[in-house]
Design a binder for these strands. Structure first.
Length: 209
DNA sequence: CACCAGGAATGTA
DNA sequence: TACATTCATGGT
C-alpha cells in the first residue's frame, strides 16, 4: 500500500511538477475559496473571487462587515449563493471570535478541526483544506477526485471520507509539504485527463490499472 | 436537452 | 448508520 501511494505521487510529480497550492493571494482568500468551491467548478469560484476583490470584500473582515445581500450578489457565479453567503458569514465570525488566524493557530490540530467542523458550512473537506493550506497542519484532504482515483485503481472501494484519509495518512510520511502537493497533483491530474478524456489515455497512472 | 463541478446540511427510516 | 433531497451557476 505504502509503495503504491508513493509511486502514484512520484508519477504525478514527474508529469506535472510542483503545483504550489492553494491558488490564492492570502490566507483569507483560501478560506473563502474553500467554501465557494464546494461542489462547484473552480472557474466559477474565480469569477466570484474577482467580484469580491473588486468590491474590496475578499477578506474575512470584509465579509464580516459586508451586507449579506451584497455578498450574495458578489458570489453569485459560484452557485448556491444563498447558502454560501451565510457560510462565509459564519466562518468570518468564527475567526473573529477566536482571535483570528493567530488565535486559532495556538490550538492543537485535533481541537481546531473539531471547532471548524462545528461551524455551519464547514464539512470535513473544507475543514481539512483550511487546516492544511491555511494553518499548515499535516492533514490529508480527501475530495471527489481522490475517492475516484482510489476506486479506479482498486486501492479502496469504500467511499468513506475518514477511511480514505487514514489510508493516505497511515501510509505516507507525515509531511505538510507532501500532503499539500499530493492533493494538488490529484486535482491537476483529474482536470487534465479524467474530465476531458474518459479513457484516460496518456494519464501518468495508466500502468497501475 | 442532460449532466457535471475541488460539498454540506437536512430529513427520513 | 445509510441514503435521499436541496442548494444554483456556468461549461460541455
Amino acid at each position: 500500500m505504502r509503495g503504491v501511494l508513493i509511486d502514484i505521487f512520484h508519477r504525478l510529480l514527474d508529469r506535472y511538477s510542483n503545483q504550489n497550492w492553494w491558488p490564492a493571494d492570502t490566507k483569507d482568500e483560501i478560506v473563502i475559496g474553500a467554501v465557494l468551491t464546494q461542489n462547484t467548478a473552480w472557474r466559477n469560484v474565480e469569477r466570484a473571487i474577482e467580484n469580491l476583490k473588486r468590491s474590496n470584500l475578499c477578506s474575512l473582515d470584509g465579509i464580516n462587515s459586508a451586507d449579506i445581500d451584497v455578498l450574495k450578489e458578489n458570489i453569485k457565479p459560484a452557485g448556491f449563493f444563498n447558502q454560501k453567503a451565510s457560510y462565509l458569514k459564519n466562518i468570518a465570525a468564527f475567526f473573529c471570535q477566536h482571535g483570528g488566524f493567530d488565535g486559532l493557530n495556538r490550538l492543537d490540530t485535533a481541537r481546531l478541526r473539531k471547532m471548524l467542523l462545528s461551524v455551519k458550512g464547514i464539512g470535513k473537506e473544507t475543514a481539512d483544506s483550511i487546516l492544511l493550506y491555511v494553518f499548515d497542519r499535516p492533514i490529508f484532504v480527501v475530495d471527489a477526485y481522490t475517492k475516484r482515483l482510489l476506486k479506479r485503481h482498486g486501492i479502496a472501494h469504500e467511499a468513506e471520507y475518514d477511511q480514505i484519509q487514514r489510508i493516505f495518512m497511515e501510509n505516507l510520511p507525515c509531511d505538510v509539504g507532501l500532503f499539500k502537493e499530493y492533493h494538488a497533483l490529484i486535482v491537476r491530474n483529474a482536470k487534465e485527463f479524467c474530465k476531458t478524456r474518459p479513457d484516460c489515455s496518456g494519464c501518468p497512472l495508466e500502468g497501475l490499472l
